[in-house]
Design a binder for these strands. Structure first.
Length: 600
RNA sequence: GGGGCUGUAGCUCAGCACGGUUAGAGCGCCUGCCUGUCACGCAGGAGGCCGCGGGUUCAAGUCCCGUCAGCCCCGCCA
């Protein structure tokens, strides 16, 4: 490299006029006027117009003539004030330019597969991922990653100041039976044995509490071999935290301070704390989901008691088979086609249908207020009760009802609620609405496995007052768990953990984990609990999700440098890929590996 | 495992319902001209396995079946 960079483009301003500088970067655009060639040079800090004039040095001018888009060059020259009227107000360096006296072409470039000088969000994601480095090289391409870097630093800054210790935990660890599918890593030294990549550092951080660390955090990669979504990657990053000698409120308060600090420092947004707290039961009752989006109202209402009084068979039969009738009110009327589409939307989520009633507050008579194929099944008193239950302050409204089993009604209506709010423009995009969900049930019944399973994970502490019901009425037992939800997306979840071996063993027993299995899978934890484990609890955040929401992105792939596709491939590297047979043999992955080993 | 959308030039897309000459557009690319442009301009040019395989047909980018890939969703999972 003959011409060594003297500064970044972003550092340049009028004060540099008449000074000689060397800048290095990529050619964004070039405008060849024959006798004069303009090149817009880009580095990660900005854009600068470089001028090659024929009169100054014909040789340099010829070299500039061969320069193409995305060539990597260093240019030496004097900064000059642009001639009057030639300024470009669109860029920060628009009132100056670099008059090239020397240029070094450090590398050529093929023509990029997509233009790097304009908005590339229209380019298909597959191509962007294959050439991720080109996407990142564009003017704003690094923005999400600069932001992410800042988030990480701010989190560390805050937690360090609070006395937290960042400690790394292993990636090659032990498979655990509960939770998601594990990614397995075959052991070369122990034929037939496997490491698992961690779904989270859960057990390690608990053991760190036993070790007296007191406050731990880690920004850590986690791995789960499940199907992907816009907000789910097989490897993702958690902000993992754990604290000793704490109750729920201590963790929640620490988190609120952290989140408030983070939003203030990185987005300049002052959040109102404490965040609202909903019980699991309330969330399900009012929103149909344990991750409610509370940026808008439109609460769900149980109208089973009204439905019971109607002659509408669909409602009656749902109630007779133990279901419920639940509904919501949208502040608008809908066309027949829109109603058909909404019905289809509901059916795709599992509803048998979607009942609706159009409501016009200012109609001439009571009867004319109500319009629907099903309104004939309703007595006047039933309609009056609807008016009462739903606050009918809107001029026009439409009631939607789902009659089904409770969980289906809740699922369908919660999705419908989001869908309608989005379409009706009820959601203000710039709002950040946090809400805590607490008082989760400790267990949920799993029909397939015919046993209770942990709603959170098996190490979650039951509410003290419910411990006595563990064996007699597991459904009644609530947990010391808490989820943090932002704009309808779960961004974090945690709990106070069990810190006594006896209680942990009781839970395992309830989960139909035999003592032998418990010893084999979690023996190290049980042993640790016996050596003076302090009360402790913590939380883990989906950091990718949080950053996605902070940046208003629709997918966590936008905030991950090299993400996987929905089919879990890396389009850049081509992973997963086949490996040499030798590698497979060495890992004892083929049938008959034991024999092969004996022979060798 | 299931449902939906998409796949045509380097990129973004039209053409497909109703099969029929040589498959188009914009941007980009190449060559030439041009000393003040900044999405420079002007003139000329190159560039296509219409995702892949099979079928129907005199004839398929267009119709049918299968398959692959990307995205969104359900299940699963956080």
């Amino acid at each position: 490299m003959r011409l060594k960079r003297s500064l970044y483009i972003g550092e340049l301003n009028k004060n540099f006029i008449d000074r000689e500088v060397i800048v290095s970067g990529w050619v964004l655009r070039r405008r060849d006027h024959g006798g004069v060639i303009f090149i817009d040079l880009r580095d990660k800090t900005g854009l600068l117009q470089v001028v090659f004039e024929e009169g100054i040095d014909p040789q340099i001018h010829d070299l500039a003539d061969s320069i193409r888009i995305e060539y990597v060059i260093s240019v030496k020259g004097k900064i000059r004030k642009r001639p009057p009227g030639m300024e470009n107000p669109k860029i920060p360096t628009g009132d100056i330019e670099l008059v090239a006296s020397d240029v070094e072409i450090l590398n050529t470039s093929k023509t990029p597969p997509f233009p790097l000088d304009e908005d590339i969000s229209e380019v298909s994601e597959a191509i962007r991922l294959k050439y991720r480095y080109l996407e990142m090289r564009t003017l704003d391409g690094l923005k999400p990653f600069v932001f992410r870097h800042k988030v990480n630093q701010t989190i560390r800054e805050f937690l360090n100041s609070q006395g937290f210790l960042e400690i790394e935990t292993p990636y090659l660890t032990k498979s655990t039976p509960e939770g998601a599918r594990d990614y397995l890593v075959p052991s070369r030294l122990y034929p037939g044995k496997f490491y698992a990549l961690p779904q989270s550092p859960q057990l390690f951080k608990q053991i760190l509490m036993v070790a007296g660390v007191d406050k731990y955090y880690q920004i850590v990669r986690c791995f789960r071999d499940e199907d992907l979504r816009a907000d789910r990657q097989p490897e993702f990053t958690q902000l993992d935290m754990e604290m000793s000698f704490v109750e729920e409120k201590d963790v929640m308060q620490m988190v609120e301070e952290l989140i408030a600090y983070l939003f203030e420092k990185t987005l300049g947004i002052t959040l109102r704390t404490p965040f609202p707290v909903f019980s699991y039961e309330t969330a399900l009752r009012d929103y149909g989901t344990d991750r409610p989006d509370i940026r808008f109202d439109m609460k769900l209402k149980d109208i089973s008691s009204i439905a019971k009084e109607t002659s509408f068979k669909v409602f009656r039969s749902a109630l007779d088979s133990g279901g419920i009738v639940k509904g919501l009110k949208a502040p608008s009327h809908f066309s027949r086609k829109e109603l058909d589409d909404l019905t289809k939307f509901a059916q795709e989520l599992g509803a048998k249908g979607l009942a609706w009633i159009k409501y016009t507050k200012t109609a001439a008579s009571f009867e004319e207020k109500w319009s629907s194929p099903i309104v004939k099944f309703f007595e006047k008193s039933a309609l009056e009760k609807l008016e009462e239950i739903f606050d009918t302050s809107d001029e026009k409204a439409t009631f939607f009802f789902v009659a089904d089993k409770e969980d289906i009604a809740n699922l369908v209506l919660s999705e419908l609620r989001k869908h309608l709010a989005q379409n009706l423009g009820l959601i203000s995009e710039k709002t950040y609405s946090f809400v805590w969900i607490v008082d989760f049930p400790l267990f949920e019944w799993d029909d397939e496995e015919d046993r209770w399973i942990s709603m959170h994970h098996p190490f979650t502490h039951p509410k003290e007052e419910d411990i006595e019901f563990l064996e007699t009425d597991p459904a009644k037992v609530k947990s010391k768990a808490y989820d943090l939800v932002l704009n309808g997306i779960e961004i974090g979840g945690g709990s106070i953990r069990i810190h006594r071996r006896e209680l942990q063993e009781r839970i395992f027993k309830l989960l139909k984990i035999t003592p032998e299995e418990a010893e084999e899978k979690f023996g190290f934890l049980l042993t640790a609990l016996e050596y003076g484990a302090p009360p402790h609890g913590g939380i883990a955040f989906g950091l990718d999700r949080l950053i996605m929401l902070m940046l208003g992105k629709k997918s966590i792939r936008e905030v991950i440098a090299f993400p996987k596709t929905q089919r879990a491939q890396c389009l850049l590297t081509g992973a997963p890929a086949e490996v040499k047979i030798e590698q497979i043999l060495e890992l004892h992955l083929l049938p008959g590996w034991e024999k092969k080993k004996e022979k060798s």
